[in-house]
Structures are given as C-alpha cells and as structure tokens.
Design a protein around this nucleic acid. Structure first.
Length: 421
RNA sequence: GGAAGGGUGGCCGAGCGGUUUAAGGCGUCGGUCUCGAAAACCGAUUUACGGGAAACUGUAACGUGGGUUCAAAUCCCACCCCUUCCGCCA
C-alpha cells in the first residue's frame, strides 16, 4: 500500500509515477473514495464529540443525585445517527481500503523507463559465455541419462509441474539448498528461518500476494490457508504488527521452503521440463532496514545473490528492471539471470527487490528511534531458486565423459566428489 | 476434537457500567542529590487520524467483529489466540 499522504498532497506526482508502470490503476477512483471517507469521518467525529459531552453531563448529574432523564431522552437519537454514520464510514473505509490494496508501488526515480521485459537494462554480465558453435546437451537429456528426475511419475502423482527428483538429482538439489543456506548464514551472517508452508490470508495480504493475485495461489479452503508461493511471505510476516528495536536493524533472514504457484494464465509457456513449475525449492533472503539505508541493502542483497552464482561458476547477468516490468510491490528490482547453454537462453533465478514501506504499511511493521515511530523498509531476494540453477548447472558443467563436474564450493555437500554421474 | 480458565499499556497486574488512557509495581528516559555512582525523591513514558504557528486540542483504540445502553475495558453473542486437563497423532 502506498502512503495516502502522497496522493492527498500531490496526486499528479503519484499519477505520473503510476503511469510509468504498464498496469493501469484508477487513481481518480481512489481519490474520490478517500475524500468520501474523510468527509464522513469528520462528520462522525463531530457527532462523537457531541455524544461524549452529553454523556459526561449525564454522568455528572447522576453522580450528584440529580435527575438526568431529560438529557438521556435528548441524547437517545444521537446514538442512532452515530450508528448509521459509523456504518457508512465503515463501508467507505472498506471500499477505499479494497482499492488501495490494488494500487501498485511507485517506482523509485532510479528505475529506468520502459514497458516490457525487452526494456530492462543489463546492468552487468559475469562469466564467459561459451562460443555459439559449441553444442551442449539439454538438461532433460542429461537428466534422463543420469536418472536425475522423473517428470512422468511426478505428473502421475500430482499433474504437470510437479517433478520428482531421483537419486543423484535429489542429492544434487539438496546439496544446492544446503550450500545456499550455509553461505548466507556463515558468510553473510543471515539468521536462518524454517517457517510454516501454510499461511493465513492476513499474511498473504501483508506482503501483497492478496487480494490481487489470489488465483495464482494454492488455497486450502476448509481452513482458508494458502501454500506459500515464496518464503518471503512467512518470513516478512513474522514481524507483522511489531515495532522493531531500531538498534536491531537491519534484520537479515534466510529461509528454505518449497514454493507453490498455480501459474494460472501461463499455460503453454515453458510447459516442458524445469522452467515453470507448480512446486519448486527456493532459498529466500529477507531484510528489514531503516528507510534511509534500504537502497544500500538492496545492492548488498543483489551482491549476495550474485556471489552464489559465482561460487557455482555459472555465467550470469544482472537486469535492472524497467518501471513497466516491476512486480506489484517493488519500488526497484534486479533480476539475476543465469545462462543455459543448451537452450541458449538467460533464465531468471533471482529477483532482488526493495519494497520500501509498501509491505511494511500493509503488515504494520515499524521501528522506533528517538521517540519517533516509522515504518521499516522491507527487501527480499531469491538466493536462489533451484530448478533453473540446476538447468544451467547441468548443462554448463556437463563433461564429454558424460559426468557433471562439481565446482569446489559445492563439493563439501556431495561428499567431496569432483564430479557425479 | 471435548472440558475448564484466560487475553488490559514495553512487561507484570488491578479495574468488571459513568470522574479510566486506564490504579499499583517493574522497566526505560530526564531531573534533584553526589567527586562519581548506587539508593532515595521529583517528573516523563502508546499509537493512528484531524485542527492549531505553538502551547494545546478533538476523535478512535483494553484479542477481533457485532449487539445491548444516554454511556462498555466492564454486560450479551460469534470468531481468533493462549494455558491446563482429556482424546487423537508424526
């Protein structure tokens, strides 16, 4: 949710910022609803003050043993009017809130203009891409040869998009997860979290998945709980409705969870293999910072995600997302894309975003310093998602001998093996 | 899932229809005292929204939502959460 003061004080500035995004939002409707709520609110406030005064007068009379029945009679109708007005106010507030919840965050001024993914700016490329002419085996081919995963049986269990990892595939995937977590904890000082996989509607609303993206989420209807689409949701919401000690900031958490996404509407895109799944594994980094340092934290977060790819010796590039391609709640976002040499494609393996106070306002996460209470800034970034890392990893490190080379950093997680297969 | 008890300020805890934003205590901050500190004493100590240059002031908030009432932390209903006991269970 964006700060109501922003659109009250300078609606044109907000309008211009929203226009940079590719999704349309009816700001005028929001302004109307805001005015309506405030109008009813001030009326209600006046009536409440009136009633409080009348009630106090009655109390005084009664205490001194007087007869207050005339005053009580006079005040009786006031209660009904307040009740009506309160109902109108609640309705107006609900309407306003419902719309405000659908308003995306405003892009940071440093975010480049642009409408589509093609307009994203390549900020950096690391590693040497293999020559165009070199032929690489496809990860599905490697998987089949080494019996690393089983899509058909996965589909038998749950449908398309639910792969089974088998044997060395399962081991390699687990090695990646442990490697990611250990680097975050031991090298970068993150606090590891193992959160619930099912979260409440309130949690999903706090980080911005709801109400707008409900159709993308798996929901357990009997309990109104949602399967987490990313560890961002439980980890950020850990501090929902809390005031964090400013001395404790920044808080840096990392968490492994499976992630569940219905991917509604993306039928037909990347339906084969590992590129788009309903369930996948990811280690997520989440930071809570003071507002004035959140952009430094974003650079740090991106750098920490990049380090994992460098340690895995996988060529990657960093995209600075244009305003039109920004996620709903992000003020600024970097995508990390790893090179898949068989597909000759860049694959997104991480998204590092600064939400500024967008999530903190929804989730009511504040900090207090010098007697002043403010909203914190929240950030998160994948570090990293395994399926696509695995694709690049297998293709990049496949050897002519039919094995997969293991870079030194990952060897401790595979019993010291220099290669598998 | 069943039974009982309970959810009040940073924390403990009183209040159980009107003078209550809420006694008392702890903690924290400021002051007095002191060479300094402790102790003691004095004062301050929630948030959101609105008005005001400011002092200040209005409204709302005692788990959440409804209801009763001139008036609700206090009474009634529903839901959520916690504790204990029982049942079930990896």
């Amino acid at each position: 949710m964006i700060d109501p003061k922003l659109y009250r004080d300078d609606p044109e500035k907000v309008r211009a910022a929203l226009k940079r995004r590719s999704t349309a939002f009816d700001l005028d409707a929001l302004l109307r609803l805001d005015q309506e709520k405030r109008k009813i609110g001030s009326e209600l406030e006046t009536l409440n003050a009136e009633r409080n005064a009348a009630t106090e007068a009655i109390a005084k009379l009664k205490r001194s043993g007087g007869d207050a029945s005339a005053e009580i009679e006079k005040t009786r109708s006031l209660g009904d009017r307040i009740k009506e007005l309160q109902a109108a106010f609640n309705e107006a507030e609900e309407k306003l809130n419902a719309l405000a919840m659908l308003c995306p965050n405003l892009p940071h001024p440093s975010v480049p203009d642009g409408k589509t993914p093609a307009d994203n700016k390549v900020a950096k490329t690391w590693g040497k891409l293999p020559p165009e002419s070199q032929v690489f085996p496809h990860h599905l081919e490697i998987g089949e040869k080494l019996k690393l995963f089983d899509f058909e049986r996965g589909a038998k269990l749950s449908g398309r998009g639910f792969p089974i990892y088998t044997g060395l595939g399962a081991r390699l995937e687990r090695a990646l997860i442990n490697f990611f977590l250990d680097v975050h904890v031991q090298k970068f000082g993150f606090t590891e979290i193992s959160p619930p996989y099912l979260v409440s509607r309130a949690s999903m609303t706090g980080t911005g998945q709801l109400p707008k993206f409900e159709e993308d989420m798996y929901r357990c209807g009997d309990d109104d709980l949602f399967l987490v689409p990313t560890a961002e949701v439980p980890v950020t919401n850990m501090h929902r409705d809390e005031t964090l000690d400013s001395a404790s900031l920044p808080l840096s958490y990392c968490a492994y969870t499976a992630c569940f996404r219905r991917e509604a509407g993306s039928w037909g895109a990347d339906t084969r293999g590992f590129l788009r799944l309903h369930q996948f594994d990811k280690v997520e980094m989440v930071k809570f910072t003071l507002p004035e340092v959140s952009y430094d934290a974003l650079e740090e977060l991106r750098e920490q995600a990049e380090e994992l790819l460098r340690m895995l010796e996988l060529p990657y590039r960093v995209l600075e997302l244009c305003a039109g391609d920004l996620g709903f709640g992000a003020a600024k976002c970097y995508d990390l894309e790893v090179w898949a040499p068989a597909e000759k494609k860049w694959l997104e393996v991480s998204s590092c975003s600064n939400f500024e106070d967008f999530q903190a306002r929804r989730a009511n996460i504040r900090t207090k310093a010098g007697g002043k209470t403010r909203l914190v800034h929240t950030l998160n970034g994948s570090g990293l998602a395994t399926p696509r890392v695995l694709v690049s990893f297998l293709e990049t490190h496949y050897t002519p001998r039919g094995t997969v080379r293991i870079p030194p950093a990952l060897r401790p997680y595979l019993g010291g093996a220099e290669e598998i297969g």
